[in-house]
Design a binder for these strands. Structure first.
Lengths: 359, 359
DNA sequence: CACCGCTTTGGTAGCGCTACCATACATGCT
DNA sequence: AGCATGTATGGTAGCGCTACCAAAGCGGTG
């Protein structure tokens, strides 16, 4: 009659885990308690060498792989870190992701990838779902979040979840923050052009209503021009997503509206590259008649002919630092800094070379 | 004395989940059984509209978010799909990842990112760990796996885990397979050059011992040359990872060893771009004196001056299809095909334009 | 009006692991 | 020797959810 008690009550979801060895199997084979087997794997120092060896032998023999899900449920913590970036369609976020991944991987954490498409609603949904994974931490692109999302994140932070916002600097970060100042970039580029004698300096970008960082660059840009008494109304922003072709169209429209424009700061290198091609079609001499600056310093900026000046940002390093900050917090210590400015650098190339916008 | 029984026995890991509402809270508030609440969320059709509404109201009011970990443990299945690619350092794998992510995201699955760095040992470790997450499926770059890894994967497949190998075609895939034939690419490029009158046709690549796909392209390349009675020994493969600079060095070495070389097929566009710059430094006319073909058709191939011919592969589509195949299987139906050839296309540009390797 | 089969709802056990506590034993001290 | 102290090991409960089964409700049928 005890037979009844021993027969498995249900067939598992017949998944990959079908017949996998459990920790109990390992413990039985090694002739130790289950908890000792668990310790031998997680805290080797607390188990005598003899037992530890037996456990490891059993693990090897049975091909045991820890069930992360059960572990996560029991401990209320996992080794998964979701990373939310706007999109994979743009090369910019990839080095960042790589930096994060390299650093987390080295420490045994997994990266769960999420893309928001610059939409707050998508971000909100992702944050909800991903919090359901008991993540070890959370990495979020940008510092702008819908109020309900922000509230939920604040609660999570208060409960001890390490969160790093990156790509931008916030006045009041949710928790930790690694990035650079977009207004400062805009101001620096405006100053760069102005210092070279340009007077009619324009900004061209995309996804006006969603890309808050581009908006902030434009703000810094305008403020600097205004401070110098230069016209600051040459700005054109499309709602379309970026592409090289769009860069050409933006330049065409800009020149039609404001033929006097001498220099343009594009929201990214793809746009700038498209604009350079359009300028060449129109027979404009670069930078003599038109100076062009991109943003992000992608490979294409250096590869184009003429090569395109751009603003370089250390995306990979930013990713590494963001992950490192998170790891420090997880390791228990308060991190050295909770707000890191990774800066930027104007890379001067052919499309802006020389004083006076060329010539 | 029953007091004892009710006091919580331990403080949870004080993590993000600290005070989060559980399914039981939702059920209590809605005045239904816990299981009914669960069903209302997962199988709405099986619950009466009235109760469903009450449950949803409670979810809303409490800000309930399902605990994915507990759900995964109880059901033996999760909505996570690990994707293993060689590296994020190369732009090639990103569109693939994007295709996968877009498709899976649309269906409510999460992507867990892993990179192998072309190392079988790393792949083995990742496969082990990731299997511990009760993944819904598995996406693996390449069809070459270390024997123990292969064995473990076969067991998982036998147990019902859907696995898709991509980027390459296998004689005997583990399960499903989406990719294109690398030998066919090599042969097609060899034929392309030969048809244009080249006789001394070389191959240049990197990471000789790790990049099996590059090796197979070389094999197809050589076979085609041999079949045409052309010399097939002009091959140079470095162990270094690819970079533009390395492309230049490879070309220099190749020309030193075999000055008669007229055409080179590079293992990727970055190498080709570096080689083009080196050729320009040497004053070689492209393609008259040297024809160059890249691989992957990255943006840089079109942006360079002269523009570089390349072999285009629909990485994004490959990712989408790989994910779609996996989803079909998960949906229960046997997928239409388990082996999909996504093909390739030679994109002719300035570095190979015209007959006779230029004229 | 009793009976059947269907749908809707709930109880319960357990997924595999880890936190907490208890126990056994070795060590060093008075 | 007798006791406190520390170290190594094990038992047990429970993490939050879902699979299985049982029971209740309900309308239709002969």
């Amino acid at each position: 009659m005890t037979e009844e008690l021993f027969k498995p009550r249900r067939a598992r979801a017949a998944h990959a885990q079908g017949k996998r060895a459990t920790l109990k199997d390992v413990a039985d084979r090694a002739g130790v308690g289950q908890i000792t087997a668990s310790r031998a794997l997680r805290e080797p120092g607390k188990v005598s060498p003899a037992l530890r060896a037996r456990v490891l032998e059993a693990v090897e023999a049975l091909g045991y792989v820890a069930n992360q899900v059960a572990s996560g449920l029991a401990s209320g913590a996992s080794r998964v870190v979701p990373v939310l970036i706007p999109t994979l369609a743009h090369a910019v976020y990839v080095p960042f992701l790589r930096g994060v991944h390299d650093e987390l991987d080295r420490h045994g954490y997994e990266v769960l990838l999420g893309t928001t498409d610059y939409l707050e609603a998508t971000e909100a949904k992702l944050v909800s779902t991903l919090l359901g994974w008991f993540p070890a931490g959370l990495l979020l692109a940008g510092v702008d979040h819908a109020p309900p999302t922000r509230l939920r994140l604040q609660q999570a932070v208060a409960a001890g979840l390490p969160v790093v916002e990156f790509m931008d600097l916030a006045e009041a970060p949710l928790d930790m923050n690694v990035g650079f100042s977009h207004p400062a970039v805009g101001a620096a580029v405006a100053a760069y052009f102005a210092d070279r004698g340009c007077r009619h300096i324009a900004y061209a970008g995309t996804q006006a209503s969603h890309d808050h960082r581009s908006t902030r660059r434009l703000q810094g840009f305008r403020a600097e021009l205004a401070a110098r008494g230069l016209p600051e109304h040459y700005a054109l922003r499309s709602e379309e997503p970026f592409s090289m072709a769009l860069g050409g169209r933006l330049l065409a429209e800009l020149l039609q509206r404001h033929p006097q424009v001498e220099a343009v700061f594009f929201a990214n290198d793809d746009l700038a590259a498209g604009a350079v091609l359009e300028a060449q079609r129109r027979g404009l001499r670069l930078p003599a008649q038109l100076a062009v600056m991109g943003f992000n310093d992608l490979e294409i900026a250096a590869a184009m002919h003429p090569s395109i000046s751009s603003v370089a940002v250390d995306q990979y390093g930013m990713g590494q630092r963001a992950a490192a900050l998170l790891l420090e917090r997880l390791a228990g210590g308060a991190p050295a800094a909770t707000r890191l400015d990774t800066g930027f650098r104007i890379v001067e190339r052919a499309t802006t070379a020389g004083p006076g916008a060329g010539a």
